[in-house]
Write a protein that binds this DNA or RNA. Structure first.
Lengths: 342, 342
DNA sequence: CTGAAAGCGCTTACAG
DNA sequence: CTGAAAGCGCTTACAG
């Protein structure tokens, strides 16, 4: 077994031709081989520890059994690596292996990556960003199926998989409203990203559906960190008719909401309820009280994107949805309580 | 260009034999080809958008140009995905592509993974855990080089790359001592991991080197989260001769130290200085004051491990260090101040 | 200075 | 029911 066994070694040991070994081991449909011969072949393969050479097979069949994931960076956001895990698991399930390459956002590296992956004959490529963005559609190797992950292309021509920002925001508002809150504030960042737009739409819709006030005085924007969150929450809390609950654009902004509340002698959740977004467990569960938050479905997005890509790999003409929004999930901790009596 | 160009297409267009194309495009050392012929070949390759088929090349040369990274899970710890990024960058730099597979810690999946990677003819495998552990040495595909990442095998027979826990702890103590602290406490978890042992050793050595007190009364163990950190710090702070500074085993335990201090009316850093470990930016930078912390070198570890593996891939008999400890780095924020006057 | 031949390890029609 | 042949797209001696 030192030099790896080849199919011809198995054939010789079993006393058959290589083509018979191939037919048996691959369970070729319609191949008529006596059961006793099959047994001999399988035993010989076992004995030699035979495993087919994927390069030779791929060369012949024109299917390498590989998928690739190209991303700008991995894990700038703490749990975004789950995108890779989900994609890998789905690829693996389907008998594929996943190659990863990071471009650091550099267009030249990205072109080289596409070229190298083409040489490697990857069956398809997943193109991911580590936070939901709209991007110019990348150019895949000639004829290679492509799916965008956590990104949407400007033209909408490439199938893409993104988090359902809107539903996430609606769930946050629902959580607050179900505890009797009527004046629900929203603290968000200053960028015009799909995340901002989606969450804003979800927030307003959820309020409107319930007949709750949708007022500009309930929304404040600031930079997307705890300092910004503190400032924005301060603005809302200092208004004449302040909210009794605040939905924060991110958990980091929610940290600022906690600070703004503390500075004003407001207790959470007795005086103010808070829901964040992202579910950065390491942060949300260490706050006191623990922060309820809407979790981004990184793993599921990776899985969905890989599954979509695989359908395209099997059949390039397959109909796949242009845009799949993957549901978020709300993680309840202790930052939401009943609305205080007016 | 619809069907991909093959080397024979380039040869035909350039009016030479495929072997000449191969020699030119691969810059084969010692191949005598007229400069004018080289030009013709290169122009033809360009014109056809020719890129060699890595499967065919790998089959012939017995080098697939791929490396693999097997890990239990990715990104349970927020920034551990950087391990992958570092490994990928190093592999890429050397003209290799990185395949990843997650086993979820399942031994059966791991065996299958090794088998599949062997079929894929990977040149070498990186075996990673997402937090420094001692493990039974995994069995790589026959003759394939193996390097452990963030893990050490029981027998010490496999080259491995780990963080320098000891130096990290020494740096934390040095940071505190340089601000005049003499009674420096240590709050750690209850597991007997390489991390616990290394950081404990570093803490004691650094103290001893400086002639500072090394006392059991300055060390408290508890579970590895903020609740544990709070309890352990409470024990230390309530003792007759409490520390003026605390080194926490993790940032999460440091959060508990902050709470214990607040509960006792101690301000950070005026009354108590704190240094954490892990540098979970999302947490450390959101605390008030920002937490100084020892950062784990995930990216550098990934790079180092891949570089080591590549040496083994080039030359299986290469001498590589059995154990490489990668330096940590201290990230200063605002939780360390001068020791209060006694 | 360049080309023809063999072969890497498979699978796929096809013949018998 | 099974085997011989061809070929996937390269690279590597080797011949001239």
């Amino acid at each position: 077994m030192s030099p790896r066994a080849r199919i011809s070694d198995v054939a010789r040991l079993a006393g058959v031709a290589p083509s018979t070994v191939s037919a048996v081991l691959n369970d070729v449909h319609g191949a008529r081989v006596k059961e006793s011969t099959r047994d001999r072949v399988r035993r010989a393969a076992d004995e030699l520890g035979y495993a087919p050479n994927a390069l030779a097979r791929g060369l012949r069949t024109r299917r390498s059994g590989t998928l690739a994931l190209i991303s700008d960076v991995i894990a700038t956001t703490p749990y975004a690596g789950q995108l890779i895990q989900g994609a890998q698991d789905a690829a693996w399930e389907a008998g594929h292996v996943l190659m990863v390459v990071n471009t650091g956002g550099d267009a030249a590296i990205e072109r080289r990556a596409m070229a190298v992956l083409r040489q490697q004959q990857v069956g398809g490529v997943l193109w991911a960003t580590m936070s939901h963005r709209v991007v110019p559609a990348p150019v895949p190797p000639n004829g290679t199926p492509l799916v965008l992950l956590d990104a949407r292309d400007e033209a909408g021509a490439v199938p893409s998989v993104v988090p359902d920002e809107e539903a996430g925001a609606r769930a946050a508002v629902a959580e607050l409203a179900s505890h009797g809150h009527r004046r629900i504030g929203f603290v968000l960042d200053r960028n015009d990203s799909p995340a901002s737009e989606g969450r804003t739409a979800g927030y307003r819709d959820a309020l409107a559906e319930r007949g709750l006030p949708v007022e500009d005085a309930l929304v404040a924007r600031a930079q997307s960190d705890s300092t910004g969150g503190e400032a924005a929450a301060g603005v809302l809390l200092d208004r004449p008719d302040p909210p009794t609950a605040i939905f924060a654009f991110t958990d980091q902004m929610a940290v600022g909401v906690y600070r703004a509340a503390a500075a004003r002698g407001l207790r959470i959740p007795a005086d103010l309820s808070v829901v964040g977004f992202d579910d950065l467990a390491v942060l949300a569960q260490e706050l006191r009280p623990g922060l309820s938050s809407v979790a981004l479905p990184h793993y599921a997005m990776g899985e969905t994107a890989a599954a979509t890509l695989l359908r395209l790999v099997e059949d390039p003409a397959a109909e796949v949805p242009a845009l799949q929004r993957v549901p978020t999930r709300i993680v309840r901790r202790a930052s939401v309580g009943p609305a205080p009596r007016a």
